[in-house]
């Protein structure tokens, strides 16, 4: 598998570390909603098809990437910096 890092270019998967499901939302730090925390920490939907997930380019620029990957074909449709995605998600919330 080859991941096109926005900073480093197309790189082999051995340079990356899988960092998990990027679809879950972390509750507000002070939240005491047990169910929400439990879902965030443990629940994964394991879908077939398109999935968004975090990959750390540990052997390259050490940025976390938000990768959209079809888990049945491994075809990658989008790669962006996770930081940028998180920032725009937060500004979306505020708007």
């Amino acid at each position: 598998m080859i991941i096109k890092c926005p900073y480093c270019g197309p790189r082999d998967v051995i340079e990356f570390i899988y960092q998990g499901d990027a679809t879950r939302t972390r509750p507000e730090p002070a939240s005491d909603d047990r169910a929400a925390w439990n879902a965030y920490v443990y629940d994964r939907t394991n879908p077939s098809g398109s999935h968004s997930e975090y990959w750390l380019h540990s052997g390259g620029c050490r940025q976390h990437l938000l990768v959209t990957r079809d888990v049945s074909t491994h075809a990658i449709s989008s790669v962006v910096f996770a930081r940028d995605a998180a920032v725009s998600a937060k500004s979306g919330e505020l708007a």
Binding site: I17, Q19, A22, R26, Y54, L56, S58, R62, Q63, H64, L66, F81, A82, R83, D84, A86, V87, K90
Partner: peptide, 12 residues
């Protein structure tokens, strides 16, 4: 890795 994850993905 743990710190980088929180810095990049959770608290950008």
């Amino acid at each position: 890795q743990h710190l980088e994850f929180f810095s990049d993905c959770i608290w950008p």
